[in-house]
Design a protein around this nucleic acid. Sequence first.
DNA 1: GCTATTCTGGAAAACGTATTCCGGTAGTGC
DNA 2: GCACTACCGGAATACGTTTTCCAGAATAGC
Lengths: 357, 357
Amino acid sequence: MTSPGESGTSIQRPAKRRRAATIVDVARMAGVSQATASRALNGSARKVKQENVARVLEAAQQLNYVPNASAQSTRRGDRSTIALIISEVTDPYFSWIAEGVIERAELEGMHVTVSVTKREASRELELIRLFRSQRSRAIIIAGSPRGSGEVASEIRAELEAYEADGGRAVDISESGMPFDAVELGNRRGARALAQSLLGLGYLRFAVIAGPDERGAAEDRVLGFREGLAAADIELAPSQVLRGAFSWEGGHTVASEMNASLIEQTEVVFAVNDMMALGALAALRSRGVAVPADVALAGYDDVAPLRDTVPALTSVRIPLKQVGAQAVELGLSERGARTAVRSVESSVQLRASTPARH
Amino acid sequence: MTSPGESGTSIQRPAKRRRAATIVDVARMAGVSQATASRALNGSARKVKQENVARVLEAAQQLNYVPNASAQSTRRGDRSTIALIISEVTDPYFSWIAEGVIERAELEGMHVTVSVTKREASRELELIRLFRSQRSRAIIIAGSPRGSGEVASEIRAELEAYEADGGRAVDISESGMPFDAVELGNRRGARALAQSLLGLGYLRFAVIAGPDERGAAEDRVLGFREGLAAADIELAPSQVLRGAFSWEGGHTVASEMNASLIEQTEVVFAVNDMMALGALAALRSRGVAVPADVALAGYDDVAPLRDTVPALTSVRIPLKQVGAQAVELGLSERGARTAVRSVESSVQLRASTPARH
DNA sequence: GCTATTCTGGAAAACGTATTCCGGTAGTGC
DNA sequence: GCACTACCGGAATACGTTTTCCAGAATAGC
């Protein structure tokens, strides 16, 4: 049954050496000065005799030399990586932004360091400090929890200090902070979604919102409200349910949703697709048919989720492009006023919200 | 229509300063020596008078001082970050592994740098060199393209050099390379899936495999074949279709799939869930009902995809745990033989593969 | 053949930090 | 008052680089 070599294979390997080779070792082996070795290895402005270059390269190869990046950057004082702070890696919303950031950064010959906040402001603060300490070229923050009070202002102060030291902070959201930003048009998008749903004949709404009233997701609630207001419809507090920004969050909210509220609701708008899908699963297991009994809309229009049944109505944001724009801002010259890029989102009507009557 | 403050807001901000404060600045402001400042700021073994500590801290605060991480680590020679190399951020398979890695690393007080290969071996090589240069504590590689020949052996050499310099390489997959590894049991899992499908009464199979015959995904094909072999069923070459490891890949393969092959097939096994979903969409748009006409199974059992309709049969791998194990290996003492951890996967039968007859 | 110029190599300084080593001060025991 | 021992601050050195500065050699120009 156990095929040979399939598992549990443990391979003998060479003992470990002690210490990485330095440029001094290379220089000694090549019989040149350390300065010459440095010049030969990184092609500085200065020329070095062809023969010496060859010897140095040969020695470096031989010793498996790799420059010590820390030493290089202390000396050069350079900023060569871009830091990306996101809330959650497993959330496709963030991973698509990350994709865009990484791709664009690579085009510029820069590397990206991705870190995760888990939506804790204290972690965000810690990470910003870390990247400041690492002299990152730019810090891109997507989906900051941007807690209230204390921590929020510490975060702001830290970012300002970072910019004062020559770094660039870029915010993905409409934060009103004095940093460059890529604006997602959450409010506008949600407004458009509300209007589209009204256009389909929906009149009675419920919203599954984020855990509290801060952050960019709340703009979606706000925009949705504005859209409804145009038809003189208001959202009562009981019609706004709150839960975590995840599949589980949506599931929990929909599971605990008051039966009479469901009864009265024609369409549920969840502020992101993951929550919408969680809600979908919960509704279904409660015997509520979607969209027959209740229609459902999400936000983000995240790719791999597009083929659920019923296909989910959502608002598409060009997330990769958002990431790319953030990089461009981060690499651009810092102006006296904050720069804001924005991106167009579009309502995608699908089977989960059929026209009513 | 345009609400004030919603968009296009550009904020005046302070002019940028020139240079980050160094520990020397702090020491000068506090009126102590640089050595004392250093000792006060990082709590070294040496004690420094309470009053001086206070003055130094005060000055640091005042100047918004943050230590220069590069300088610190050139001096200390420390290795304090873990590098994670994955193929694709947007693929939930990888992002769940990343989640596990990041979470576990944080428990150990380490930070993680995530980089993306895009499945190009040359990029992998470049990244390994980068991390070697940055003196990462460990390099965890998930889903290496592990190209053939030339580059593959360069990669191996680079990793060996990295370990010789004191780093730790951890491989997520069964690679047969002389590095510690977390084994996913791909072959075993696929074999079990095949057996389960046979148990349900399926007899005619097709496989949607990766673009070529290398890498861990091919073990899934191999294991599947082994499982079928137990019932004396063989997979003809025409029954193994190849495409990219993505939704699009699965979609393309299924779109181009020969109609008579579909006719003859009872169940399609795609080597990962994303491809399965792509195939699902394509089949559907060709008018092929799933599972009525053709059943479908995937692999990975990735969370947000679980509630497609029909629910997708798949093989669940505890991906977060895989990431965590990789970190443990990377932080453990290096032994004379490679260590291998393995993880249990389990077949999840769902509606996409109903029992036959 | 002599001077002026261009090359190119090496010694030394610098980057910002941590740490070793030295010396002075204060405290303790007589 | 003296010797001995903590204690703690500062000067100097080290980390592995890049870069400046100097000097010798080679080349060019006459």
